[in-house]
Design a protein around this nucleic acid. Structure first.
Lengths: 210, 210
DNA sequence: CCTAAATTCAAACATGCGTTTTAATTTAGA
DNA sequence: TCTAAATTAAAACGCATGTTTGAATTTAGG
């Protein structure tokens, strides 16, 4: 017996899919409520504003992903020696686990993260820092252990380059996958992009400074 | 004796600055015409539409940058052996030359490119491919020569990761530079980000596949 | 069952957008 | 200088957005 979905959840599910496909600003409340088959006003009734809805959509994933990531980091931290590749591999399992939240969870989450960072950089950064600051600090520690030669400033920039690569790969992932499929006849599933991404960013982080 | 600026140029200059700072969709024609101190309707009179204005802003830079980049590629192509770092270094001088177009040309151009790719991926890609397809093909040839082991598909993805890194670095460049300055007391000029970027992307491209 | 709270609904609101219109004004050529 | 074209100007148009309103309806507790 499936409990009938509440309006709130219908909105969240519809919003997350549309946000992941078209971005936050490009998705209107009318599209969302139409897809969710609920009344337009119900978004403001249940969430207060579009901004709050976006936050709720993100939080649903971050609350699962971040603790899982933290566990991976803590496990890796016990190793005496660490390299960049291992640090980035920490993201794989927590990402895969998002499939339990929702069928296309891993894909949706990365796409949402991409749009969030592209459209509302400061906002998301602040949110993650205040809610999951310890995880991010752990990441920084891990990266430093993996690459002790790199100065903190250079590491800062490179980590953000990594984030940018990730973001971009997801945001334009669909378009690129279509082009790749057309040009090379090789179709890459959305969740497989990360397999191509990790060696790239690990190589970038490990590069000599100049 | 300075020739008094024409309305068309006043619009282009104001638009380019606002586009570079806030993105295309986030910048309204009213903001542009107010900054340019011209009438709102003049944009549609001189350019036809906002879309055409965006294209004109981009074209002003691409028409200078792309031929310069092509010259760099052709020069490098004469070398018997090429590595990724050299290919990416080809971008430096053409970028620097954009300062002749406008004082903050290099910064503006990268930022515009970033927003263009983030907001209207397909459009920009098509425009560059049709107008400067030979340059892009040259890039692909150079990259293959620099890294013959890499399969065409993997090279395709990595080049787009590179573009994504570039895009992201510029789009969120201002915010990140402020954070970096606050956290590390080291202020990085916008046009210096590329110095941090090039080693990173070269390292990423050269990484082992998996 | 009855009532009060919670929710849904249709409609309207206020705002900002790109674009168009129409008239006034400036510019340039005969 | 006169006239026709080019340009500027103010205003309004049509549309889409997020949000609010107030009444209708459903839900839950005594």
């Amino acid at each position: 017996m499936v409990k009938r979905m509440t309006t709130k959840d219908k909105i969240l599910d519809a919003a997350e899919q549309l946000f992941a496909e078209h971005g936050f600003e490009q998705t209107s409340l009318r599209q969302i409520t139409a897809a969710a088959e609920v009344n337009l006003a119900s978004v403001n009734y249940h969430f207060g504003s579009k901004k709050a809805l976006i936050q709720a959509v993100m939080a649903r994933y971050l609350d699962v992903f971040m603790p899982a990531l933290q566990r991976q980091f803590e496990q890796l931290a016990q190793q005496p020696v660490i390299n960049s590749r291992q640090v980035f591999d920490c993201f794989r399992e927590p990402l895969r686990e998002l499939a339990t939240v929702r069928k296309h969870g891993p894909t949706y989450f990365l796409s949402l993260l991409g749009f969030a960072y592209a459209e509302i950089q400061g906002h998301l950064r602040r949110y993650i820092m205040t809610h999951f600051g310890d995880v991010m600090q752990l990441l920084q520690v891990m990266m430093h252990r993996a690459n002790p030669n790199l100065s903190p400033v250079d590491m800062f920039w490179r980590l953000h380059f990594v984030l940018g690569t990730l973001v971009f790969a997801q945001v334009s992932g669909r378009a690129l996958r279509e082009i790749a499929a057309a040009d090379f006849g090789e179709s890459v599933r959305a969740d497989q992009i990360i397999d191509k991404l990790i060696p790239f960013v690990a190589g970038g982080v490990d590069a000599a400074v100049a």
